[in-house]
Amino acid sequence: MSVSSVVLLPYAPSSVAVARQRLSTDLEDSGVSTGCIDDAVLVVSELLSNALRHAHPLPSGMVRVAWLWSEDHIEVAVSDGGAATEPRAGRPTLSSLGGRGLGIVEYVAESWGVRHDGDTTTVWAVLPAPNGSVNGRTPALKEAG
């Protein structure tokens, strides 16, 4: 059993909260444990915030957020119109005000990376969601709506 969604959102800071809510609701409705949901929401927040801060929108003026949950992992991905530099985890000083996003992703996720497809850049991350992490319910595939 797996659940997946793809959401196109405006290239705007308000989209971070929308993506967090949609992902959280989708995974919660599927019975994923709260801890796994919290990790996935944190990672999506960091990836989307980085896209909005450092990259261009897709040609449509939007950004794409996607996720896939299967029995043992959650994969999240944010696609944008690319940037002048390659996304990489920084090593900020303690007094730095930013630069921790991909470091957080690197810490929380099992793996993460960057894919390029023409002018589209996708930063993805895979998080553990072991079989025992379901909230005592049988996952149910939601109808796309």
Score class of each variant (00 low, 15 high):
Met1Gly: 12
Ser2Arg: 13
Val3His: 14
Ser4Leu: 10
Ser4Asp: 15
Ser5Cys: 06
Val6Lys: 11
Leu9Gly: 10
Pro10Leu: 11
Ala12Lys: 10
Ala12Cys: 05
Ala12Arg: 07
Pro13Val: 13
Ser14Pro: 01
Ser14Leu: 07
Ser15Leu: 10
Val16His: 04
Ala17Leu: 09
Ala17Pro: 02
Ala17Gly: 09
Ala19Thr: 13
Ala19Pro: 12
Gln21Gly: 10
Arg22Lys: 15
Leu23Glu: 13
Ser24Thr: 07
Ser24Tyr: 03
Glu28Ala: 15
Thr34Glu: 13
Gly35Trp: 08
Cys36Thr: 12
Cys36Asn: 13
Ile37Tyr: 03
Ile37Val: 15
Ala40Tyr: 02
Leu42His: 04
Val43Cys: 04
Val44Ile: 10
Ser45Tyr: 00
Glu46Ser: 04
Ser49Ala: 14
Ser49Leu: 04
Ala51Ile: 02
His54Asn: 08
Ala55Met: 02
Ala55His: 13
Pro57Ile: 04
Pro57Asn: 01
Leu58Ala: 01
Pro59Leu: 08
Pro59Ser: 05
Pro59Tyr: 01
Gly61Phe: 08
Val63Asn: 04
Arg64Asp: 01
Val65Ile: 06
Val65Pro: 05
Ala66Pro: 00
Leu68Phe: 02
Trp69Cys: 12
Ser70Asp: 15
Ser70Gln: 12
Asp72Glu: 12
Asp72Ile: 09
His73Pro: 00
Glu75Thr: 14
Val76Glu: 04
Val76Ile: 07
Val76Arg: 09
Ser79Trp: 01
Gly82Thr: 07
Gly82Phe: 05
Ala83Trp: 01
Ala83Thr: 00
Ala84Cys: 05
Ala84Ile: 10
Ala84Met: 09
Thr85His: 12
Thr85Asn: 05
Glu86Asp: 12
Glu86Val: 14
Glu86Arg: 14
Pro87Ala: 05
Arg88Asn: 02
Arg88His: 13
Ala89Met: 01
Gly90Asn: 14
Gly90Met: 15
Arg91Asn: 12
Arg91Lys: 10
Arg91Pro: 00
Arg91Tyr: 07
Pro92Val: 09
Pro92Tyr: 07
Leu94Tyr: 10
Leu94Arg: 12
Ser95Trp: 12
Gly98Met: 08
Gly98Ser: 15
Gly99Pro: 06
Arg100Ile: 10
Leu102Gln: 05
Leu102Arg: 06
Leu102Asn: 08
Gly103Lys: 06
Ile104Met: 09
Ile104Asn: 01
Tyr107Cys: 14
Val108Ile: 15
Val108Gln: 01
Ala109Ile: 08
Glu110Ile: 10
Ser111Gly: 11
Ser111Cys: 03
Trp112Leu: 02
Val114Cys: 15
Val114Phe: 04
Gly118Phe: 06
Asp119Cys: 02
Asp119His: 10
Thr121Arg: 15
Val123Glu: 06
Val123Asn: 11
Trp124Phe: 11
Trp124Val: 03
Ala125Val: 04
Ala125Cys: 08
Ala125Gln: 08
Ala125Asn: 10
Ala125Lys: 09
Ala125Phe: 03
Val126Phe: 00
Val126Gln: 14
Leu127Arg: 09
Leu127Trp: 03
Leu127Pro: 11
Asn131Gln: 14
Asn131Tyr: 13
Gly132Asn: 10
Gly132Leu: 03
Gly136Arg: 06
Pro139Met: 06
Pro139Glu: 02
Pro139Phe: 07
Ala140Glu: 14
Leu141Asp: 04
Leu141Ser: 09
Ala144Lys: 02
Gly145Asn: 05
Gly145Met: 01
